[in-house]
Structure formats: C-alpha cells, structure tokens
Design a protein around this nucleic acid. Structure first.
Lengths: 208, 208
DNA sequence: AATTATATGGAAGGGGTCTTCCGTTTCCGT
DNA sequence: ACGGAAACGGAAGACCCCTTCCATATAATT
C-alpha cells in the first residue's frame, strides 16, 4: 500500500503551494493556481485532493492544531486575563497573517472533521478560560464564550485589510467592552488615508 | 435626445430587479440574473449599464442618500448620544436588511462619484456628531470619527448572518467600548446552535 | 536491463459569466 | 398608416474553472 516517492513529493509540494496561495488570496483561489504554484498538473492536484475542502483541511491542519494549543495554553495561564487578552491578540495576528486561515476561522466545514475537532477543542478551552477570567474578576459576567465567533467575524474584515493599526484598535475596543478591570488606553486611531485606500473596490479584489 | 418609453420602462425594471437581486445575494450576482429577474435580455442590461459599478451606483443611490440624511439627522439630534446610538443601530439594520448595501457600506467605489459624495457627506456629519457627543460627555475622548469604517467592517460579517441577536450583541459591545456614560447591559448572548449553523460553509455560499 | 504497476498532465468537454453582433421588433413622428 | 430610427435579445465567442480521459512517463522490483 506504499505510495511512490514522487507521488509523496508532489503531495507535499501541493500542500506547500496551497498554504502560500490560500494564505495570500484566500481559500477560493482556483485549483489551477495551486497546481501552477506547485509545479504539477491540475489532474495531480485533483487526484490528491478530489474536493477543495480536502485540500483546505490538510493545508490548515497544522495552523488549526496550533490554534487549539494556543487556546489550551491561554486557559492554563495563571493570569487568566493575560491569557484572555493574549489569546485575542494571537487570533488577530493569524487573521492578518493568512487570508485563508482568516476565512477558515470564520467558516465551519462540517465535512472537515479534523478541523472541526480542533475548533471544538479550542472552544472548550476558551470556555474554561472565560470561567477563570470571570472568577478572577477581570472579565465581565455577561460575556459568553459563544461571543468568540462574533469577535472573530468582527476582526476578520479588518484583519484582512492588512492595516495593523486598524486591527489593533478594534481589538482594543473589544477588550475594553468585555474587561472588568482597570481601563487601558486605545492604540492610536488608524491613518484615515490608508484605511480608505484599503476599502476601495479594486483593493478588495472587485473589478472597478 | 429623448429616450423611448419602452427603454425607460426597461431601465426602471432593471433597477428594481437589481435592488432585489443585489439585496438578497450581494453585488457580485451575475448580470444575467439581474436581466432574468427584470424580464429583459442581457444586452439590454449591458446597454443601460455598461459596467457593474454603474448599476451598483444607480441601484443604491437612494439608500446611500438616506444614509447621508440619517447621519445628518443624527448630528442634529439635541441628544447627541441618542443620535450616536441610533445611528449605529440604523447602520446594522440596513446591513442586515440588504446584503448588497452591506457590501456597499464597506467598499469604496472611486468611479461612482455620487455614492462617494454621499458617503463623504455622511462622514462629515458623523464628525460633527462625534464632537457633540464628546462635548456632552457621553462619548469617550479617544473615539475617532474614522473608527466608523472599522465599526462597519466589524458589524458587516455578523449582520450578514441574518441573526439579529448576534448583531445586536456586537453593537452593544461596540457601544459599550466607546460610551462614556453609565453602562447598559448587553442583550442576551446569541443562540449558539443558530450561530454555528450560520457559519457553515454551505450557509455561506461556499461549496462543501 | 527489463518488466510492471503507479503516477503523470495536457487537452477535451461541460458549465458559468461577460461582451457584442445583427436580424428582428417596437416606438414615435409625420 | 408608413417609414425610419431606436431598442431589443438570443446566440456566438472569449475567457474562466472544474472534471476526467488516455497516451506517456516514471518509479520500483526482479
């Protein structure tokens, strides 16, 4: 049942290319672009990953596992508020860093069981983290763990602009909204010219 | 130079169909679907609106004008905080109500001068509104009018889910984050099962 | 080296979107 | 009612993305 060495090599090249291509342009990029970037034919991509969801699952398996590990580490932080804050900051960092993973974090793939298992694991740890931060008096009582996907959706569009100032500012607003402790100042307001340029239809992959 | 009556009628039917189609499925819907809904041929749509941006501009001219009027009304509200709050609540209402206009509110179209003029007018009034709310001590000093597009981006994805509970909750978080007055409680947390169902790839127009 | 099984990829075909042509239809002025 | 100009829309063609076939290439074993 062993696969040939060239087949294994090609599979690895496809996954590497997919990580690049999806990371830059999102998970809806044509499979032919993944093939081109990998230096293989389109049929080779299809044989390895007959459905796009399979390729997404494999491509982001590592990142998703790291997501779950980071949630677990945040839940284990002795300073629960620090854990909460740094988890949110980690989230927007990965949202900014990979457009494809940003999309994966805000989309559920019922058929991609491994991705969903890691997402569930992260959510369970996030529930624990929320309980600890509330118990420590640092997170408001009315915060719900199920606000996590809301926050992810909220930061997703802003993270996608690639403007760190904008992203940091929104995160700071969200943290302020759910924090129960002393206030921290917001980071500086984003540079308006940069922000509005980023909102233009052509910058967003829409034809003019 | 006068146009025939049937041409005028067809133009109106196209705009009406576009408002429906774009409102339901967003501004990237095929032009052929607009034509079908309007009961005209695809060439008729292209003759009236040679570029998609032209059709978008005309389709949402009214809504965008209302956006500007609402910002002006909010700025004229004797209770500036009430003006601020109700403006944000109006925003998410229209974001939820039309997927296309939701996209227009978070995308700039440099070639659609009328849309951009209304957006600018709204922003000028929003600047005045922010100043008044700060002067009234109800809006934090560190809030910037240029946070408006950040807030629109943040609410856009959530509004698109069509889950009012989720939308209301995120708005409440954002209001709490920038309010300087007494706190108000958050609306109830969103129903998790509904939220996660809405996040599924098939619910989001992505193939499984 | 020879053989066999595995793996490859370019191209064909299908479906989708957009652009445009041109024969036909419709409107409007006389 | 007639004639001419305006307006129409179906289909062809170009381009894009996905699926799959089959002749060819490559790897692995003897």
């Amino acid at each position: 049942m062993a696969r040939r060495a060239d087949a294994e090599r090609n599979r690895a090249r496809i996954l590497e290319a997919a990580a690049e291509v999806f990371g830059q342009a999102g998970i809806d990029v044509p499979m032919s672009e993944v093939a081109r970037r990998a230096g293989v034919g389109i049929a080779t991509v299809m044989r390895n990953f007959p459905e796009r969801e399979r390729l997404i699952e494999e491509t982001f398996a590592g990142a998703m596992h790291e997501y779950a590990l980071t949630a677990a580490a945040a839940a284990a932080d002795p300073d629960a508020w620090h854990g909460f804050r740094s988890f949110l900051e980690y989230l927007v960092r990965v949202q900014s860093g990979s457009r494809g993973f940003n999309e994966v974090l805000t989309t559920m793939f019922p058929g991609a069981e491994r991705l969903e298992a890691e997402r569930q694991a992260a959510l369970r740890d996030f529930v624990r983290l929320v309980q600890k931060a509330k118990a420590a008096g640092r997170l408001r009582a009315d915060f719900s763990p199920h606000d996590l996907p809301l926050f992810l959706l909220a930061t997703s569009n802003v993270a996608r602009l690639g403007d760190d100032a904008a992203t940091d500012r929104l995160v700071a607003y969200l943290l302020r909204a759910c924090a129960a402790g002393p206030e921290v100042p917001l980071p500086p307001a984003t540079e308006p010219r940069d922000l509005y340029r980023a909102l233009e239809s052509s910058s967003r992959g829409r034809p003019a």
